[in-house]
Design a protein around this nucleic acid. Structure first.
Lengths: 227, 227
DNA sequence: ATTCGATGCATGATGCATCATAATGCCGCA
DNA sequence: TGCGGCATTATGATGCATCATGCATCGAAT
């Protein structure tokens, strides 16, 4: 009943479209950390001129989803352990806040939507489709902040996820199960409209999920530096 | 002893320079909410072509420091009460986290730097220079997150302040005293390396400072809508 | 006859493409 | 391993076509 979804209005200009395409690519892990992106190359592949690609890249750099290592060298950033930990701590705070607020004001329809996501996630996991499971997990987290009615917070989260995208795709893309079990306590809290419990639950989820990623960072970082 | 200030490394390309110029202008309140910006106009005034201005505007839009009301209508956003409250809540969480960490690991030199800022702020206030006082207050908040060693958080904060910039400049630019008194409990907590106390102090500061701004939003918003 | 509303046109600003240039990455060599 | 040259690549400028905004004129109703 909240009117139309205004966020879909962005598809007017080419630059915005390319930006979204690149966002999805980063989230999906189509680019790996330390990969180099070339504007002309992308323009050729997309069949456009360099201008809109330039626009999209610039926006991604502003999001820190890409970095300009030098004025002519655009790369996917390699998160250091310290940076990843910082992002994790920020998420613990922000998503905790969002989960609490979402729990307090969640409608039955919203609760059902979250449950549906969990169910689809389970199915994807059972089918061994880890890529889909990871994506559904991500959507779940975004939905929570959406239901908290905090668009600014949601945007910050989107950016943080964009920065982590290549890394977590690298970690969970290969093997391992997604951490869906931790979401059920959160659902219980939301159903009970218990804000603090919801915050604790999602915070525990984030911290637990960071384990495999931290292991991976330690293992992958020196090797990547050698390349 | 923490090396150079890496944020100044951006001055390589024209677009980055213009971006920073526009950021300062927004912070200083050179643009008012609902002002319209024209790319060609700015390009003429800066003596460059439209390309770097375009880049800068695009980055500002990505920061949500500007909005594209229509594809050819770039404006300074008018914060709604809800959006301002959301930003305030996010700041309460994030700056609380940063203040706690800064308190725990602050060096004597850093403590002295903060005290110096407070002193200069007092002087500016005594001289009736509210613009400078507001700017110093802002620098104080940024320094806290810098000393917390959280660059990602600092960047998020910078963006939030960029969004609020025109509004608070509008409120505090005219008259009224800056809320410097609330910073002294924070300094006490930092000197004592008491993280939780520092968090509480800065949170109280943010909440108290939001009072005049909220009053102003209520007063200014219907009037602006009528225009 | 006057005022309100609608349609059409002109102005103006932006998005995208193309071009020139200067700086850099990469590769090979000492 | 360190350095130099070449090809490459981003940056900045310019031009054109498109589209929205605003104004003026025209028509109709009271």
């Amino acid at each position: 009943m909240s009117g139309f979804d205004l966020t879909l209005l962005e598809h007017d200009n080419l630059g915005g479209t390319i930006y979204q395409k690149l966002c999805e690519a980063l989230m999906k892990g189509a680019f790996k950390p330390n990969d180099r992106l070339k504007i002309r190359d992308l323009a050729d592949r997309l069949g456009t001129s360099v201008t809109p690609v330039r626009d999209a890249i610039l926006r991604l750099v502003q999001d820190q989803a890409l970095v300009l290592r030098s004025p002519r060298d655009i790369r996917v950033p390699m998160l250091t352990r310290a940076t990843y930990l910082e992002i994790r701590d920020i998420r613990v705070n922000l998503e905790g806040l969002a989960a609490a607020r979402a729990a307090e004001q969640a409608t039955p329809a919203q609760i059902e939507a979250l449950e549906s996501l969990l169910k689809r996630n389970e199915e994807a996991m059972a089918a061994g489709n880890t890529a889909l499971a990871t994506e559904l997990n991500q959507i779940f987290h975004f939905k929570v902040s959406e239901f908290a009615d905090m668009p600014v917070l949601g945007d910050i989260l989107r950016r943080l996820w964009l920065q982590m995208g290549p890394l977590i795709a690298d970690v969970y893309g290969g093997a391992g199960r997604t951490m869906i079990d931790h979401h059920y306590p959160l659902m219980d809290a939301i159903r009970g409209h218990d804000g603090p419990a919801a915050a604790s639950a999602i915070q525990a989820d984030i911290l637990l999920a960071s384990g495999p990623i931290l292991e991976r960072i330690d293992g992958v970082h020196p090797e990547a530096l050698a390349v």
